Amino acid sequence: MKTIEDIFNIIKKTINLKDDFIEYEIRLSNGTFERDHLINIYNIRKGIAIRQENHKRTEQIQHLLNGLENYSEKFLKVADISNNNYFTMFYLSQDWNRVIGYLENDINDGTGI
């Protein structure tokens, strides 16, 4: 079983996190999330972002959808990483070995996830 710090380091290879492990609050999912269900949810959220003309959010969701659609397994795990100004939801392979996609959010920009 991977430790929270192991998972953080896998995530850090995918996205440029500015601080060390101890600077973030990290939550890992206990359960799994079904890939097809997530694709449906994020297609709806993408449609909402398009109607709101939120181009940044639309692009982020499309990037996540690409990762989900290219992932061949049925289930994923989720990790949330946050600190005072930052929150990101990461979808990882069921064995926690690689990041499939993520949605990044600057808490001060008000776009929400």
Rank of each mutant, 00 (worst) to 15 (best):
H37K: 13
I22M: 01
S29T: 08
G31Y: 07
E104A: 05
R57E: 11
A79Y: 05
I61P: 06
D6V: 09
F87D: 09
E53T: 10
R27G: 00
I113Y: 09
L64A: 03
E69P: 03
I26H: 05
F87V: 05
F8E: 07
I81P: 12
I41K: 12
H63M: 06
I81S: 09
L65A: 02
L76M: 15
Q62W: 00
K13V: 04
D20K: 13
E34A: 03
T3C: 12
G31A: 10
N108S: 15
N85W: 04
K56I: 15
K77P: 12
A79Q: 06
M1V: 12
R98L: 02
H63A: 11
Q62K: 13
S29W: 02
L65G: 07
R51P: 00
F21W: 07
Q62R: 10
N108Y: 11
G101H: 05
M1I: 12
I48W: 04
E5M: 08
N54A: 08
D80I: 12
I61E: 02
I11A: 10
G101C: 02
D80P: 00
R98K: 14
I61D: 03
G101W: 02
T111I: 13
T58N: 01
F33E: 11
D95M: 08
N70V: 07
D6G: 04
N30W: 02
Y71T: 11
E73V: 10
I44H: 11
I81Y: 05
D109G: 02
G112V: 04
F87H: 15
L38F: 11
N16S: 14
N85Y: 06
I107N: 03
K56G: 07
Y71S: 05
L64V: 00
K46S: 07
T32H: 08
I41T: 12
S93E: 13
N43A: 00
V99F: 01
H55A: 11
I100C: 01
I39M: 05
N105E: 15
N54W: 01
V99I: 10
M1C: 08
E59Y: 11
I39T: 07
N84C: 01
I48C: 01
I107H: 03
I22A: 09
I61M: 02
I39P: 03
Q52M: 10
L38V: 07
S29K: 06
S72D: 15
G101Y: 06
N54P: 06
Q62L: 05
S72M: 10
I4T: 15
M1Q: 08
H55I: 13
K2L: 15
I100N: 02
N83D: 15
N54G: 03
V78I: 14
I44T: 11
T111F: 12
S82V: 00
I11S: 04
F75H: 13
I11N: 06
A49G: 01
G112H: 02
I113A: 01
R57D: 10
K12Q: 12
K46W: 08
Q62Y: 03
